[in-house]
Design a binder for these strands. Structure first.
Lengths: 218, 218
DNA sequence: TTTACTTTGTTGCAATTGCAACATTTGTTT
DNA sequence: AAACAAATGTTGCAATTGCAACAAAGTAAA
């Protein structure tokens, strides 16, 4: 994961902050921010910590729009985030930097640290696109079972192991997969009963092979 | 939509192409490219035309991964595109530029046109993230009806009108929403019968208001 | 214009899912 | 340790969906 200030010295980082009028912000663990008092178009960078961007619809369904950890970016420039429609939940103590998107792009500074920062941002955002693609692949699966399997596949690949560790609790996982929690719970039970997986808390063991029939319809 | 060569002169564009060893490629209308003979990490830019990136799973379900028009980018850097798993379909005659991702990022050229290009790319990719977010919002809806309504909402907003024009045929729309085509067809009929929409070919008229009860559970 | 192919529309039916309601377990706070 | 809150597990049931199979309409090619 690329650090947004990769190859930028502390001193130049300060200069950059001044140039871009960046603000830093600290959010306590389990605190919810429902509006970011900032200009129209902003980009936020997670310096440290872990947040979720959530939305709650009229039915009370909570949807996890995004999950962000250190060095990742978010902002209304990158989504249709309008204040108040979404909430930002810090799962642990989190520091973020807020900066004006226009200011980032429109600055004509010839400074090396500025160009370097733009490049770093490009890399980070490219990674984000990739992650979103993975999410889309999951969401396009038509059954809960296939969504779970696709999610496990990606996680297993990321963690290079058949013993995978969920970064979610099950309630959040259901929101992430956009399915009903109890229906997901049932499907997980079926997968267990059929001997495909083992679950111990957030640790899941995949008992099937990559060429298993299970994968055939993914 | 930002042009990747915005504020870059023709001459500098040529220099840029040489610097990044970019190749141009022309694809005839309705031709399918199933593998891009190129280095591992590439970025493609649509210069002119319109393509779809599709995937066909073991069930024969076709999924539209991405839709790209002029000035948009794609590439395995931006998704998990592995050759052969996906196909690229040109809906019309399309020209694309292929370039090496590492080369783009690792070049240390101090040239103004190079930095400008990076900035343009950043803007384009930011827009892509935004579009993917919209897609995710649609896919997280739990019923076909709500997926359709969310899709219509976004389209109506984009086209600033209640008379919207589908960029898809219905078969492709179903793939885009990741639902069964016939089930979608049925749902569209219900929406018509209930007087919420009118359909004439690819032209759809939304007959409900933004504060309609229909929207309440979106 | 006849033929072939693609897209759209329709329907019955079985499978899957969401929903609601509740029990149980786990975690947190005082 | 008691009291409360949150997460997990379970189940019946109705609603929604996917699937299959086919008819009709539209489009392109010979």
């Amino acid at each position: 994961m690329t650090n947004p200030f990769d190859q930028i010295s502390e001193k130049n980082k300060e200069r950059l902050f001044r140039l871009l009028e960046a603000d830093t912000l600290k959010i306590d663990a389990n605190k919810i921010l429902s509006s970011l008092v900032k200009s129209d178009d902003f980009i936020g960078i997670i310096i440290k910590g872990y947040i979720q961007i959530r939305k709650i619809d009229y039915n009370g369904n909570r949807i996890i729009i995004d999950e962000l950890e250190e060095n990742q970016v978010f902002g209304n420039t990158l989504s249709s985030l309008k204040n108040n429609e979404y909430e930002i939940l810090a799962k642990e103590e989190t520091s973020i930097i807020l900066m004006d998107y226009d200011r980032i792009l429109k600055s004509e500074s010839p400074k090396e640290y500025y160009n370097r920062f733009i490049k770093n941002l490009l890399k980070i955002i490219s990674e984000k696109v990739k992650e979103q693609n993975a999410r889309i692949e999951i969401l396009t699966k038509r059954t809960i079972r296939n969504k779970l399997l696709e999610y496990f596949r990606i996680l297993s690949q990321k963690q290079s192991s058949k013993y995978i560790y969920l970064p979610f609790n099950f309630t959040d996982l259901a929101d992430y997969l956009a399915v009903d929690r109890s229906a997901m719970s049932r499907e997980l039970r079926y997968l267990k009963e059929e001997g495909f997986i083992e679950i111990k808390g957030k640790k899941i063991t995949l008992l099937y092979e990559k060429d298993s029939a299970l994968y055939q319809n993914l």
